[in-house]
Lab assay of single mutants.
Amino acid sequence: HNGKLCKLKGIAPLQLGKCNITGWLLGNPECDSLLPARSWSYIVETPNSENGACYPGDLIDYEELREQLSSVSSLERFEIFPKESSWPNHTFNGVTVSCSHRGKSSFYRNLLWLTKKGDSYPKLTNSYVNNKGKEVLVLWGVHHPSSSDEQQSLYSNGNAYVSVASSNYNRRFTPEIAARPKVRDQHGRMNYYWTLLEPGDTIIFEATGNLIAPWYAFALSRGFESGIITSNASMHECNTKCQTPQGAINSNLPFQNIHPVTIGECPKYVRSTKLRMVTGLRNIPSIQYRGLFGAIAGFIEGGWTGMIDGWYGYHHQNEQGSGYAADQKSTQNAINGITNKVNSVIEKMNTQFTAVGKEFNNLEKRMENLNKKVDDGFLDIWTYNAELLVLLENERTLDFHDLNVKNLYEKVKSQLKNNAKEIGNGCFEFYHKCDNECMESVRNGTYDYPKYSEESKLNREKIDGVKLESMGVYQILAIYSTVASSLVLLVSLGAISFWMCSNGSLQCRICI
């Protein structure tokens, strides 16, 4: 991952900044910058967002509201009850120091605090018919004063009620008058409520006091790749198909172990950190130390980045220098085999997901714990399936590479015959000098055995068991695999060879 928040398929997220979902939807004055928000790819909250409900109280069923919003990608904020005409018999300019803005008392931008007009609070009834052709999110509140005197001074009615009804919602609220500790300079409380109004449905408000009335509502448009994440990451000019709280993932790998919460087309989250597919040879310690064997393909974004291909070729060293050249036929066979294998694994496992966190309130801790156990169970199954699949494929890959290298080895052996000696570690020792032209003939299969047989015969008789390297004779190393990324691999195959001279070296080696 890149540690950044990015656009998702070209669409920017909605960053709530210092506000949370509650503050944004109710219209906390400190969240005025969010009022123009219309569309987004996903919503970003920060872990310690401080601006929620400015007048103390709870947004009821907040967790369910977050779940609903996680599939919303755009909205239209509109005046559901026009301020100047909807409440002619009531005062609608209630403000509070708890919702101060720029040093002055204020109130929510989407709600109206209705109080008595003169000395009376006549029963009010108002309704709205949803003609938007889509779901409408309606929010309101109920004020709970701290004393009967406060109730009387604001609403005149000691036994007030609030009723809200639609086809799918029907509740009646009565204020709970009680002494409470002071929070944000208030002994009173406000509880906030919401409902989704279906197209064509009607919502009716009736009250004799204590109503925090809707002013603006939201017509919602769903987008199934949307979601809500909690993150401290910063926004950058970048684009992605998959976003996590820790950063964007741009990967076609089937798995990731970065974060379980994802938005967009994302690899499946697994616990494993070692889900690797081999593309090189079986481990040979001396070669492995030099980083030549054991190439791997990573299938977990965050564990290993991208696929690494092994390729086969020849390396030689003689009086004229040293050089490398790919054996294109065996390399292409290996590439085709690995590509098919990788595609097979991805096809089997690479279903892209959006995974969002589930919200539970403080009273639902047991449910949250149960949900976590269920999620953990599914996660263990996914991890096991992934590891088992790759384990089985790896064994076949190792066998496949062994065969490829063996074929190259036999190709060289059949040409050199007794003009060189096998020394048991995949290397041959020449009994004759071999210049670049000679080396090329070994690589392309045109090695002239009779041409060098007499010199080889004489050297075999002279050496008589002495280690060949100390006599200045020449080696050919018969097994060799270097490691390159897919891009470098293609470039390498396009070149005939490249040279690395070893000044004054008397050794001649050709490596497979």
Score class of each variant (00 low, 15 high):
residue 394 N to A: 04
residue 273 T to S: 11
residue 396 R to A: 01
residue 431 Y to M: 15
residue 485 S to Y: 03
residue 364 E to V: 10
residue 390 V to G: 01
residue 362 N to V: 13
residue 246 Q to M: 15
residue 341 K to S: 06
residue 255 F to L: 07
residue 276 R to Q: 01
residue 433 K to R: 13
residue 471 M to Y: 11
residue 235 M to F: 14
residue 330 S to G: 01
residue 300 I to L: 14
residue 303 G to K: 05
residue 408 L to R: 07
residue 406 K to C: 06
residue 369 N to C: 03
residue 403 L to S: 06
residue 384 Y to D: 09
residue 335 I to M: 15
residue 432 H to T: 12
residue 395 E to S: 13
residue 260 P to M: 00
residue 459 N to V: 10
residue 417 K to L: 11
residue 327 D to R: 04
residue 318 N to Q: 06
residue 281 L to R: 03
residue 502 S to V: 13
residue 315 H to T: 01
residue 441 S to Q: 09
residue 360 F to G: 12
residue 236 H to M: 10
residue 295 A to W: 08
residue 472 G to C: 11
residue 293 F to E: 01
residue 506 L to E: 01
residue 445 G to I: 11
residue 486 S to A: 15
residue 419 N to Y: 05
residue 450 P to G: 09
residue 466 V to N: 04
residue 478 A to G: 12
residue 287 I to L: 13
residue 261 V to Y: 15
residue 441 S to K: 13
residue 329 K to Y: 08
residue 272 S to H: 01
residue 498 F to W: 08
residue 345 V to M: 09
residue 424 G to S: 09
residue 492 S to G: 00
residue 495 A to Q: 11
residue 427 C to L: 09
residue 497 S to I: 00
residue 411 K to F: 02
residue 242 C to R: 01
residue 367 M to C: 06
residue 423 I to W: 08
residue 442 V to W: 04
residue 247 G to V: 04
residue 302 G to S: 06
residue 360 F to D: 07
residue 315 H to C: 13
residue 283 N to W: 09
residue 467 K to A: 08
residue 484 A to C: 14
residue 493 L to N: 00
residue 482 T to I: 07
residue 365 K to E: 04
residue 388 L to D: 03
residue 495 A to M: 02
residue 438 C to Q: 07
residue 290 R to H: 00
residue 348 K to E: 04
residue 248 A to T: 03
residue 427 C to S: 03
residue 314 Y to K: 04
residue 399 D to K: 06
residue 430 F to V: 12
residue 433 K to S: 14
residue 273 T to D: 03
residue 469 E to F: 07
residue 245 P to M: 06
residue 291 G to F: 12
residue 244 T to V: 05
residue 271 R to H: 13
residue 327 D to K: 10
residue 431 Y to N: 13
residue 242 C to A: 01
residue 503 N to H: 03
residue 431 Y to W: 11
residue 488 V to G: 03
residue 274 K to Q: 13
residue 261 V to S: 09
